[in-house]
Amino acid sequence: MTTTTPEEENGVKRRDFLYIAAGGLGAVGTAAAIWPFVSQMNPSADVLALSTTEADLGGIDVGSELTVVWQGKPIFVRHRTEEDIASAENVDLSTLPDPEADSARVIKPEWLVMIGICTHLGCVPLKGQGDYGGWFCPCHGSHYDTSGRIRKGPAPANLVIPPYEFLDDNRILIG
């Protein structure tokens, strides 16, 4: 069988198409079958339903801070003083490791809402400490200012602002 006739060549092409079709369908089916097994590890419906937390601001005096839990993470809710706000706004942004204006980080200037997780390696910073009047992370020495921005130390970014909105003057909904 060293020479091939035109019919045989056609046969070869049709045969190859059949095998390609079979293999392709099999691959598609396998991929579709794998998807549920990947998806099941994503948050389940009950976990997603708990993805918002309400915080009551009424009890937080000026200059005090409350920590609430949202999605398992600590959230710092600080009722800022006039000095806090002033020192946060009067900063030359070009001197910041992660330049960001204070106005971009708050909805109402007297309320600062941040995820209290250091952007370096995840420790929870301590309030009222550090060289910039804000927070200090004891793990590796990152200093955050009164807007929660990184000023000194190994952390690469400012403390993250979670999505939140004011339900009224005394309540916010985080998430």
Binding site: P36, F37, S39, Q40, M41, N42, S44, A45, D46
Partner: peptide, 27 residues
């Protein structure tokens, strides 16, 4: 990954799989 092997929790963990886990009912 979603089942809890404790007498007080097992039955409900299976229902959690059936109702809340993505494609849990299928698996």
């Amino acid at each position: 990954m979603h089942y809890t092997p404790h007498v007080d929790l097992a039955f409900n963990s299976v229902e959690h799989i059936m109702r809340d886990v993505n494609y849990g009912w299928l698996i």
